[in-house]
């Protein structure tokens, strides 16, 4: 109940009359007072989240010669090195998103069928894996499929040769990143896939429908929008992933990535940070665009139900 309404109720016996300017002002003041405890968080958020983004936009538009314009974006898009980084990131994110959709969708469905008890162990494992990226994970994979890794050795003894490319290659990076993004995809999917009702499958069975037909006509159409939305989300998160790529893509043969370029610029360059700012703004625009798309698709998905 809002303060103004309760104020009116107090003077309930008096005939209804228009609010005086004074009581309006008092109402507004008490509304402001009511919202006051939220102001530190809002100010903090503006200072630490909104302001930095504005600073990035400003730096990306500022020209070294003075004035503002899109020259920095033109410079980034016309430099072959920078274009390769953008292409590398896009390609990595697309493969990663596709892998997550293809492996993660059946995985999430399988986990839903495990029931509460089975999921009690799987969920924490998935949760930890999402925040496990970094040097430790890279080292573990080095011990497995590096040049003298355990699996590499096993392969060499059985078949000869070393089939595994380096961790910084497109293959290596995708394999490593699945450790983080696959659980993310599953965690995103579980609640929405959980909307598939057992009654629907029972109804399909009663009407003698095959399992394939059930999935084609009922199951898949229901979860398809969510698959699309979550794949999109993994794409965005892969574009922005940093810790693992930073650790493994340090050789010249590695895949060039936007985030790693930003990081290296920020750490080394004393001046000329406009390239980092421009890359960061490109990532920002992409994230805002996909977030919008994500919500639109999800709303569509929710409408079906």
């Amino acid at each position: 109940m809002s303060p103004t309404r309760s104020g009116n109720a107090d003077s309930g016996r008096a005939p209804a009359r228009p609010l005086s300017a004074q009581s309006l002002r008092a109402g507004r003041r008490s509304r402001v007072v009511a919202a006051l405890p939220a102001s530190p968080l809002i100010l903090f958020g503006i200072a630490c989240l909104v302001l930095p983004l504005l600073a990035l936009v400003k730096s990306s538009l500022e020209l070294r010669a003075g004035g503002i314009g899109f020259d920095n974006f033109v410079a980034v898009l016309s430099s072959s090195v920078d274009r390769q980084a953008i292409l590398g990131s896009l390609q990595f994110a697309a493969i990663q998103a596709l892998l997550c959709a293809v492996i993660g969708t059946p995985l999430a469905l399988a986990m839903l069928r495990l029931g509460q008890r089975g999921r009690r162990w799987w969920l924490p494992l998935m949760n930890v894996a999402t925040s496990f990226g970094g040097p430790g994970l890279a080292f573990a994979f080095l011990l497995l499929i590096g040049t003298s890794g355990a699996i590499t050795m096993l392969w060499t003894q059985l078949f000869g040769g070393n089939p595994f490319p380096s961790l910084g290659s497109m293959f290596g990076l995708n394999l490593l990143s699945l450790y983080i993004h696959l659980p993310m995809y599953v965690i995103l999917s579980l609640p929405s896939f959980g909307m598939l009702r057992p009654e629907w499958w029972e109804a399909a069975q009663v009407s003698r429908s095959s399992r394939f037909r059930y999935w084609r006509r009922v199951g898949f159409p229901v979860i398809a929008p969510f698959i699309a939305a979550h794949t999109l989300q993994i794409f965005t998160w892969s574009m922005g992933s940093y810790a693992l790529p930073y650790v493994v893509t340090d050789s010249p043969q590695s895949v060039p990535l936007i985030t790693v370029e930003i990081g290296r610029d920020l750490q080394s360059a004393v001046f000329g940070l406009e390239r980092a700012a421009t890359f960061a703004v490109l990532l920002m625009v992409l994230a805002i665009g996909t977030m919008w798309l994500y919500r639109t698709i999800q709303e569509q998905g929710a409408k079906i139900l």
Binding site: L49, V50, L51, A55, L56, K58, G263, A280
Partner: peptide, 17 residues
């Protein structure tokens, strides 16, 4: 914001600010 944007971008913005 922190869910949509990479934390690296937030950090970069903070450095510029």
């Amino acid at each position: 914001v922190p869910f949509a944007l990479p934390w690296l971008v937030i950090a970069a913005g903070m450095q510029f600010t």
